[in-house]
Amino acid sequence: MMRHLRSIMRITWVDKVPSKEVLERTGLPSMEDLLTRKNLRWTGHLMRMSPNRLPNKSIYSQMPSVHRKRGRPRLRFKDTIKRNQKLRDIKTHSLASLSQQRDKWREIVK
């Protein structure tokens, strides 16, 4: 994406313009911001679903304890939800009530 933006704006690597500045000039969000938005949108859908639906069950279920490999544990979807909540300053206890109010949820996600 950045390569195409740079070619449209005729910015070469010799100009040494950082990617953050290219995004500011174009007014486009970063890839991290886009992924955070998509994740929060899906989280809102999950919170509004009934608890007996499969996606909701899979989020709140726990795997039986198994032997883990060495190193850092792999991120779960729950962990990314928590990280994105911190990025958008959403309190954990207010997540369920905010997601039920679609207008407020859309404002937070954008």
Results as ranks from 00 to 15, higher is better:
residue 43 T to V: 14
residue 32 E to Y: 14
residue 71 G to I: 08
residue 39 N to Y: 06
residue 59 I to R: 13
residue 40 L to Y: 04
residue 72 R to A: 10
residue 21 E to I: 06
residue 31 M to H: 06
residue 54 L to I: 12
residue 37 R to K: 07
residue 84 N to S: 03
residue 70 R to I: 13
residue 77 F to N: 11
residue 46 L to I: 05
residue 31 M to F: 06
residue 55 P to I: 06
residue 69 K to S: 11
residue 56 N to A: 12
residue 56 N to G: 09
residue 60 Y to V: 13
residue 108 I to C: 00
residue 84 N to I: 01
residue 103 D to N: 14
residue 51 P to Q: 07
residue 91 K to D: 05
residue 107 E to L: 15
residue 70 R to Y: 05
residue 86 K to R: 00
residue 23 L to D: 05
residue 89 D to Q: 15
residue 57 K to R: 10
residue 56 N to L: 10
residue 61 S to C: 12
residue 41 R to V: 04
residue 58 S to V: 14
residue 29 P to L: 00
residue 72 R to T: 14
residue 109 V to R: 05
residue 110 K to D: 11
residue 63 M to Q: 10
residue 2 M to E: 14
residue 16 K to H: 13
residue 108 I to Q: 01
residue 20 K to G: 13
residue 88 R to G: 02
residue 52 N to R: 12
residue 61 S to P: 08
residue 67 H to K: 15
residue 33 D to Q: 09
residue 48 R to M: 05
residue 72 R to I: 09
residue 27 G to V: 08
residue 29 P to N: 02
residue 102 R to F: 11
residue 81 I to S: 03
residue 49 M to Q: 07
residue 80 T to Q: 13
residue 56 N to F: 15
residue 35 L to P: 04
residue 44 G to F: 02
residue 54 L to H: 10
residue 11 I to F: 08
residue 36 T to A: 02
residue 31 M to G: 08
residue 77 F to K: 14
residue 98 L to I: 00
residue 72 R to P: 04
residue 27 G to E: 07
residue 89 D to G: 03
residue 43 T to M: 06
residue 57 K to N: 07
residue 98 L to M: 07
residue 37 R to H: 04
residue 88 R to S: 03
residue 87 L to R: 13
residue 100 Q to P: 00
residue 54 L to M: 12
residue 38 K to R: 04
residue 78 K to G: 13
residue 49 M to H: 04
residue 97 S to Q: 08
residue 82 K to L: 06
residue 29 P to M: 00
residue 51 P to S: 09
residue 64 P to W: 07
residue 90 I to D: 00
residue 11 I to V: 15
residue 95 L to D: 01
residue 46 L to S: 05
residue 72 R to D: 06
residue 1 M to Q: 11
residue 13 W to I: 12
residue 84 N to C: 07
residue 32 E to W: 11
residue 95 L to K: 02
residue 43 T to A: 09
residue 82 K to G: 08
residue 83 R to P: 01
residue 74 R to F: 10
residue 73 P to Q: 06
residue 106 R to C: 13
residue 9 M to W: 12
residue 87 L to C: 07
residue 25 R to D: 13
residue 93 H to C: 04
residue 23 L to V: 07
residue 38 K to D: 03
residue 81 I to F: 08
residue 4 H to D: 11
residue 38 K to E: 03
residue 1 M to V: 13
residue 92 T to L: 02
residue 44 G to Q: 02
residue 26 T to R: 14
residue 94 S to I: 01
residue 21 E to G: 04
residue 75 L to I: 14
residue 27 G to F: 10
residue 74 R to W: 11
residue 83 R to K: 03
residue 77 F to R: 15
residue 14 V to F: 13
residue 70 R to Q: 08
residue 62 Q to T: 14
